[in-house]
Each structure stands twice: as structure tokens, then as C-alpha cells.
């Protein structure tokens, strides 16, 4: 290229030899092939969006409407600052398989849910682009998804059974903040055994329910009454034949703690990302 016989502006252009012209033609074709290749690879990043296959449980404040994530994917600068501030390390970054969603934050609730133990929505505060919107300030304002009792047949509460021991086994790495143990530092769930006559873990560990109870006691988190959720998220309703049925209410924000703590495998209660409270499922 450097010996291309093109001259500076205003100079007469020398006539190209046939050999030189052929070289130029080939270079043009090669460059076009490279162009098609790069653009093809670029557009391949859109394939995972087909059927919203890469829609995921996103951190609080993600600017999306259930499965419609275009705005969120566009606004996210893929830096992972939200990952760094999360006290329970709930946030993961998507890989190449997510196409244009590469590097965007998501939560694998069964492994490590968001338990709002930061109280102040640190991930939202850390986000430099507003992909996690600064319009929300409190856990109860998030709309990540909605819990659903997917397998009532295996739910210990429905079966009228209690639960003794560590909820997810000794090997489980997930953490939760237990106010009674340590107000500030989350601890491994594996270090916190339970002894329950009737299993109520989904309700007992629900961050919304915990906040409601604290507010009822006159001790809202950080002494801030704005932290008090307006509505309950989950209740256990006693059944006629014994046992109790977990009922998800409209205060549920879809944080995933119930799915994480549910001691049966697979979890009886799961988070749907195509539903949020105050809105019907998509499609």
C-alpha cells in the first residue's frame, strides 16, 4: 500500500499498469471479504436475542420490561462495577453466548440471590450509565421478576413437613445476611442451620418480609422509614388437611432469595423473569 502510486492533491494521477490494477482489484476483493466477515460476526451477536433466549434475572433497577431488554443491553457499558460492590457477590457477567449481552450483569438466583443486604442498592449506585436506573432507592422498588410456587408437590410446607439442618447442604457457597448474627456481614447459608417445625424458609428469609417485620417492630433498616416495603411479598396459608401453602403476593420483587434458600432440589419455588408485580406475564 505504501508504494501505491497515488500522489498528493493536485498532482496528475499516473496511469496504472495492468499489474498494479490487478493488485488493487485483489486488495479490494480481500478487504471486502474481511468486511463481510467482520460484519457477519458483529450481526451474529444478535442471534442470542431471538426468542429472548438470553433474557435473564437482572440486578435491581435494570431498565427492562420483563423479557424486553433492549434498553438495558444498550445502556450497559459492560464494566462490572455492579459486580464489584455487591456484598453477597450475587452478580455475574454474561459470556460470549449472550451475544450483544456479553459482559452484562445477571443473577443466578438458585446459586446466589440478591438479598439486598447492602440496603442502599449499591449496584444501582455503582452503575455509570443508568442501565441500573437511579430512579429506585429502596429494595421494595425493584422489579426483577416474580416468585412462583412451581412444584407444590415437593414443597415441605405444603407437605406439612419441618426442616432441620443447613438449607442447601454443607457444600453450598451462597450467602445471606442474618441480622441476628451480624447486621453488616453476610455469612454462608451453610453456616446457619435451621430447626423448623414447619418449613417456612421462603417467607422467613424473604428480604421484603424481613423489612416488614423490622418496620412493624419500629426498627426499619438504617432507621429509614422509606426502607419499609408497602406490601407483603409472601404468606404461608394454612391448609385444611394440614401443612401450609406459600402464596406469592404483590409485594414480591423477584430477588430470588426464596429460590435460593428452598431446601428441596429442584427448588419448589422459582423466579419467573417474564412477570413482575403490577404487570401480567409477557405474551
Amino acid at each position: 500500500m505504501s508504494n501505491d502510486p497515488k500522489t498528493g492533491p493536485g498532482k496528475p494521477r499516473p496511469v496504472l499498469t495492468p499489474k498494479r490494477r490487478e493488485q488493487n482489484r485483489r486488495e479490494f476483493i480481500r478487504t471486502s471479504i474481511l468486511g463481510v466477515g467482520v460484519l457477519g460476526a458483529t450481526l451474529a451477536g444478535l442471534i442470542p436475542l431471538v426468542g429472548q433466549a438470553n433474557a435473564r434475572l437482572r440486578p435491581p433497577g435494570a431498565i427492562k420490561d420483563r423479557l424486553a431488554e433492549q434498553e438495558f443491553l444498550a445502556a450497559c457499558i459492560k464494566c462490572g462495577q455492579c459486580v464489584q460492590v455487591c456484598p453477597v457477590e450475587a452478580i455475574l457477567l454474561a459470556d460470549l453466548a449472550d451475544g450483544v449481552g456479553i459482559g452484562t450483569p445477571y443473577i443466578q438466583a438458585r446459586d446466589q440471590a440478591c438479598d439486598f443486604s447492602c440496603d442502599g442498592l449499591q449496584c444501582v449506585l455503582a452503575c455509570p450509565t443508568g442501565a441500573l436506573t437511579h430512579d429506585i432507592n429502596y429494595p421494595a422498588q425493584s422489579r426483577m421478576g416474580l416468585a412462583r410456587l412451581a412444584r407444590p408437590g415437593s414443597c415441605l410446607a405444603v407437605l406439612g413437613q419441618g426442616f432441620q439442618g443447613v438449607a442447601r447442604g454443607a457444600e453450598f457457597r451462597g450467602k445471606l445476611r442474618y441480622d441476628a448474627v451480624d447486621r453488616w456481614t453476610p455469612i454462608p447459608v451453610a453456616d446457619h442451620p435451621y430447626d423448623l417445625e414447619l418449613c417456612d424458609l421462603c417467607m422467613r428469609q424473604c428480604p421484603i418480609e424481613i423489612r416488614l417485620a423490622q418496620c412493624a417492630d419500629g426498627a426499619p433498616p438504617s432507621g429509614d422509614v422509606n426502607q419499609c416495603p408497602p406490601r407483603p411479598a409472601i404468606r404461608l396459608e394454612a391448609q385444611a388437611g394440614g401443612g401450609a401453602l406459600p402464596v406469592v403476593l404483590d409485594g414480591c420483587v423477584g430477588c430470588g432469595v426464596c429460590e435460593m434458600i428452598c431446601p428441596v432440589d429442584p427448588a419448589a419455588i422459582v423466579i419467573d423473569i417474564d412477570r413482575v408485580t403490577d404487570a401480567a406475564p409477557v405474551g
Binding site: 451474529a44 434498553e71 444498550a74 459492560k78 459482559g103
Partner: peptide, 18 residues
């Protein structure tokens, strides 16, 4: 036009940094 950060999928700079 698409509203997606298309280049980021391919960016070796971002991929390696992350």
C-alpha cells in the same frame, strides 16, 4: 439503528479486560 452495542461483542479489549 439497531439499538445494541454491537461492537462490544467482538471487542478483544473489553473481553480481555473483563
Amino acid at each position: 439503528v439497531s439499538g445494541y452495542t454491537l461492537f462490544e461483542t467482538l471487542s478483544p479489549t473489553g473481553i480481555l479486560s473483563r
